[in-house]
């Protein structure tokens, strides 16, 4: 079992190293949108501060959404997904590894770069810790939920819009609690309740999403 997980993780990271564009794309998207906001809103720091938590969270959400569709696309197209489905081990284990690799390559870099973007949007320094923590937990939830959508739509020729329709409703609670945490921290209050809720969402998603992803992949492989 450990061997399967290590092999799948190694492979996903190796593929990312060989095609770095797919890793860099969401980050560039994040950067560009965050750069556009001060131009659109105006240079008033107070207004920027007010919008910063929501902006940072919405852009992080969209950047994840952008990357999530490709989670199983390549493997479906070249048939390696079939081999994975037919493997003797349960499918939810590699499914979890795919999500983890996806998060390592999108959610984690977004989180690590977020202080820079926070400064561009005049977010108070005291909220940056909370921003990072909320993104760390939240992007993991987004990757897990996105994985379900990706697994269900990978067999379709054009799953782009459908995956958004499927998973954005489930992204809403993450967005609400994530940006609320940052808003509370920016106002000088404790963001612990929101962070705890995000942690709870993550626990629930880690426990359930891999099974849903595995089921979705089996359905998609059937269609392929």
């Amino acid at each position: 079992m450990g061997r399967l997980l290590a092999a799948c993780l190694r492979r996903q990271l190796l593929l990312a190293v060989r095609r770095p564009v797919e890793v860099v794309n969401p980050l560039v998207f994040f950067l560009l949108v965050v750069m556009l906001f001060p131009l659109g809103i105006g240079p008033d720091p107070r207004q920027l501060t007010e919008f910063a938590p929501a902006v940072l969270w919405i852009v992080a959400l969209l950047a994840t959404l952008l990357a999530v569709e490709g989670m199983f696309r390549g493997d479906f197209d070249d048939g390696t997904l079939e081999q994975l489905v037919l493997a003797p081990q349960p499918l939810f284990l590699p499914a979890l590894t795919y999500v983890f690799a996806h998060w390592l390559l999108t959610g984690l870099p977004l989180t690590l770069l977020s202080p820079l973007f926070a400064l561009m949007l005049q977010l108070p320094g005291k909220a940056i810790g909370t921003l990072m923590l909320s993104l760390l937990l939240g992007t993991a939830v987004l990757s897990l939920i996105g994985g379900i959508g990706a697994a269900l739509t990978v067999g379709l020729k054009r799953g782009g819009i459908l995956i958004s329709l499927l998973i954005i409703p489930f992204y809403v609670p993450v967005l609400i609690f994530g940006s609320a945490a940052v808003q509370f921290a920016a106002a000088g209050n404790s963001a612990q309740p929101q962070l705890l809720v995000l942690g709870g969402m993550l626990s629930l998603a880690v426990a359930l999403a891999p099974f849903a992803i595995a089921a979705g992949l089996r359905i998609s492989v059937d269609a392929g």
Partner: peptide
Amino acid sequence: LLYLGHKAGVKTLL
């Protein structure tokens, strides 16, 4: 079982 289908079953980047 081993199934060999029409798809390449090979990652071209690897």
